[in-house]
Design a protein around this nucleic acid. Structure first.
Lengths: 193, 193
DNA sequence: CCGAGTGAGTAGACACTGTCTACGCGCGGC
DNA sequence: GCCGCGCGTAGACAGTGTCTACTCACTCGG
């Protein structure tokens, strides 16, 4: 037994992550996940009482991935606090664009609204990390507020960019340039070098 | 015949708008729309070959609504260019929060990606309006880029606020304060009164 | 040693969805 | 007067999420 001794619960989430990356969000069916796991369509119910619960588990995997990526990006960045904020923001955008299906799932309204996917265990740690960096970069700023507004800007940027609205509207073709504009707007012109 | 002499096409869209406002996005079923219109579930197919096509028509209604609201807000605003940008942004946020289902539908990835809902007829006119106001407010700015980034910020703000992420993360309970922060970030400290 | 209990997964039903196709019905033009 | 045809109906089909009844291997207490 090379794989099948890991619990079915984990295997379902694994299959879901794969399927999500391969086929997109609308393909993330309960039955298809069960099929890919090699199990009947009623089996997941033993571990996830509802489809939404399984989706939430998959989304949590995504948040863990994002946090890991952010940590790696910060480890690579040796500059000052502002450069670290830029690295974090870059990692966030990168994640959203490289794993669009997962990002979409993570911020689905019905997942968030059903209190299943608690923000506390997911985006909040990353958010407080951002808040800390901003406080370090600019001690005079209202860090939580700036962090919140910056987060909103990154989120909107990722979405509008992904479905090419911003490219069409602004004519801009370089996302990094827009990101720099965002950082300047919220952190002021950078002394980072 | 008070209503039934308007074409079925329009009646379907009307019923869809109502249903969307009353029950939310996931209730916006082809069959339910047909039911509420008083026709069989196959009838819509005569006008909308697919469910997505009908949803796109409903979303277009939403964009028209949003544009109308924006125009009214600008008509009410007698201040300078910056105040007009603020009025436009406020109307945008108001719309997103008062009609969450419609806003969600308007920015559904699969609608936008399926080229059916052309940005040209929908959000682009509003966007160029915003660009013009920004150019007037700050002649030195790269107006399209600032407009794009500001739009992204408004979009992100609307979404994160709606599912209460920002409230939880920042502790802020006043959306207008966050909006002011956004405007200051992208337009500079306001001379607006 | 063995039989009861139990936990995990199966199989099928149900109501619902979107799509497709065959069918009528009523009305206007020749 | 009849034909055609646009418009809507009715039913079938595959697929979905949920629920329930069942099987079956495995453990554990006597």
């Amino acid at each position: 037994m090379t794989e099948s001794d890991t619990s079915l619960r984990d295997r379902l989430v694994d299959a879901g992550v794969e399927l999500l990356a391969a086929e997109g969000l609308q393909a993330l069916t309960l039955r298809e996940i069960a099929r890919r796991t090699g199990v009947s369509h009623g089996a997941p119910r033993r571990y996830f009482p509802t489809h939404l619960e399984l989706l939430s588990a998959i989304a949590r995997r995504g948040f863990a991935d994002l946090a890991e990526r952010a940590r790696q990006a910060l480890d690579r960045e040796t500059g000052g606090a502002r450069a670290r904020v830029a690295a974090l923001a870059g990692a966030y955008l990168e994640f959203a664009l490289e794993q669009p299906g997962m990002y979409e799932l993570m911020f689905r309204h019905d997942l968030l609204e059903s209190g299943r996917l608690g923000l506390r265990e997911t985006s909040l740690p990353l958010f407080s990390l951002l808040t800390g960096l901003i406080a370090a970069a600019d001690p005079g700023a209202d860090a939580p507020r700036v962090a919140g507004v910056l987060w909103a800007n990154l989120h909107g940027l990722a979405q509008l960019w992904r479905w090419r609205s911003l490219q069409l509207a602004t004519g801009e073709e370089d996302l990094a340039a827009l990101l720099e504009t965002v950082l300047v707007a919220h952190l002021g012109p950078g002394g980072g070098r």
